[in-house]
Design a protein around this nucleic acid. Structure first.
Length: 514
DNA sequence: GGACGGTGAAACTTCAGGTTGCCTC
DNA sequence: GAAGTTTCACCGTCC
């Protein structure tokens, strides 16, 4: 049983959150502040920063760290600058928009007790293990598609659970804020004394079931409908809902689709004839096998629906980068799509009109949900700008997508392109080269013309662009250009290695370098 | 009188997040 | 639903 105790925190600002955070710093302890948006995380961190005064010695240390944060990107965005400013006073914010270097620096320095306060979105509560003396939970509500909703008790526990360092502190404090007495009672009842929500199985959700059915078949773990039923009868879903007829119905519907998409075959033993999935409901012994294509889909962890969507879309021979990017933007794997802000609507619609011809039927298909369509278009535009060498700051300004989110999106796109390439190898070999080129451009964020230069080690889009501007456009150009010129563009060491890669050894220089 | 700057109320806008594949220097 | 941001009217000051 925990002790009942009261703490008093002096009020020095109009915002209780700041008071608690400042008080923690005064006690020479650390705090994590949880808020419900990235913008708030940044704003609270900044407000705390403004109330702090550091000694010269502290300033020196933090400036160094701040510098590292700023230089995490070749073109610092305003987010980078903001974080650097906060860190220069020992405060940080943390959310999915930080790039990996910045995130690592923040976490590491908090662990080492250098950073005093982190203002974070719920990301921090889920993954990394970062305990603090205090967790200050400012927001217990969050925006959802159905408006503002209280966060689940489970999530409150995740966040409050960050308070107290095992083996280091006797005590941890988790602080929430009540508007009034009534609110206080509600919070105590719901969060402090309430039970966490039940966990609900999502197995019967079709995209998930599709993937599992295919994978069970592809690995030969289940060979017929009966075995599938037996397998699913042992799952948490079946345990939770008792009645598994619903699951059987969805399962046979799923199987029908998998067959239609040519990912599985269903063969009746007795007659050696193929049967449709519907008939086959009654003959549970019919052998189910994954096709080669089906196996590959399963190995790639693709939703079979997506796989089929990609294969059909590519049959239209829409091979322009825009078309391909639009296709990928309409795969469920790429979600959530980018938001279309009020000031972006016009631009997005303009782009759509201009490029409609490239997009295929999908753009009409989606008319039923116009807002979703524009979000898909927006995402396509974002990808297009990325492979046209927009830098992080430009993307942040145009799309309100932060560096960390850029990386996450691009990585997902990269995976989808890879998967599409693999499927295309089995279905439409002619398209492989287009996808391969798009993948190179996606990974590097660059235009077509730089591709030949990216083959060199340690040459990414920035250096490739520099070479290109100097009229060095391919392997041959690298071969023939004078070493001195090349080294003037990219520095000695890199120039040397590039020459080596094209089979030219620049001997005397190499010696002086060593 | 006009330029400028500070202030605050009102209007407007936006809102968390991560696992899959494969390879590479 | 609420925080953060932008806009705009208002006022005071200075030249």
């Amino acid at each position: 049983m925990q002790e009942d105790y009261t703490i008093k925190i002096p009020s020095t600002s109009r915002e209780p959150v700041l008071d608690v955070a400042l008080d923690t710093i005064k006690q020479d302890k650390q705090a994590i502040v949880f808020v419900n948006s990235k913008r708030s995380a940044e704003s609270v961190a900044e407000k705390i920063t403004k109330k702090l005064n550091l000694t010269d010695k502290e300033k020196e240390f933090y400036n160094e760290l701040s510098e590292k944060i700023l230089k995490a990107l070749s073109t610092p965005t305003r987010q980078c600058k903001r974080l650097a400013l906060c860190v220069s006073k020992g405060i940080a914010f943390h959310h999915a928009g930080l790039n990996s270097t910045q995130r690592r620096l923040v976490e590491q320095n908090f662990r080492e007790r250098k950073i005093k306060v982190i203002c974070a979105t719920p990301t921090l509560a889920q993954g990394v293990d970062l305990p603090a003396y205090r967790t200050i939970i400012r927001d217990l509500k969050r925006f959802t598609s159905r408006g503002m909703r209280s966060i689940p008790v489970l999530e409150y526990e995740q966040q409050s659970g960050r308070a107290g360092r095992p083996g280091m502190e006797k005590l941890g404090q988790a602080i929430v804020f009540a508007k009034d007495e009534k609110d206080k009672k509600y919070l105590i009842k719901k969060y402090l004394n309430g039970d966490p929500e039940d966990i609900i199985s999502k197995l019967a959700v079709e995209p998930i079931l599709r993937s599992y059915v295919l994978s069970l078949v592809a690995t030969d773990y289940c060979k017929n409908f009966k075995e599938l039923e037996e397998f699913f009868a042992k799952t948490f879903f079946a345990y939770q809902y008792q009645d598994d007829t619903e699951l059987s119905i969805i399962m046979s519907r799923t199987l029908e689709k998998l067959k239609e998409w040519k990912f599985v075959t269903i063969q009746n033993k007795e007659t050696s004839g193929f049967v449709s999935a519907k008939e086959y409901d009654n003959s549970n012994n019919a052998r189910i096998r994954a096709t080669i294509l089906g196996k590959r889909v399963s190995e790639l962890y693709l939703d079979p629906y997506t796989a089929n969507f990609i294969i059909s879309y590519l049959k239209e021979n829409k091979i322009e980068p825009i078309s391909l990017l639009f296709m990928f933007s309409n795969c469920i794997e790429i979600k959530p799509l980018l938001n279309v802000g009020v000031n972006m609507v016009e631009e997005t619609e303009g782009w759509l009109q201009e490029n409609e011809d490239f997009l295929g039927e999908e753009s009409e298909l989606m008319q039923e949900d116009y807002y979703e369509l524009t979000r898909g278009v927006r995402t396509t535009m974002f990808f297009e700008d990325w492979i046209n060498e927009f830098n992080e700051e430009e993307l942040l300004n145009k799309y309100n997508v932060r560096p960390g989110e850029i990386n996450a999106k691009i990585e997902r796109l990269d995976w989808l392109i890879y998967s599409a390439t693999e499927l295309t190898r089995l279905t439409n070999k002619d398209l492989v080269k287009h996808l391969v080129r798009l993948r190179i451009r996606t990974r590097n964020g660059c235009k077509e013309e730089l591709i030949p230069l990216l083959k060199f080690k340690n040459v990414g889009r920035v250096r490739a662009r520099r070479l290109f501007k100097n009229n060095i456009k391919n392997v041959h150009d690298v071969k023939v250009i004078a070493y001195e010129k090349l080294s003037a563009i990219l520095g000695k060491k890199l120039a040397l290695n590039m020459k080596k890669e094209v089979g030219i050894v620049v001997e005397d220089v190499q010696e002086t370098l060593l």
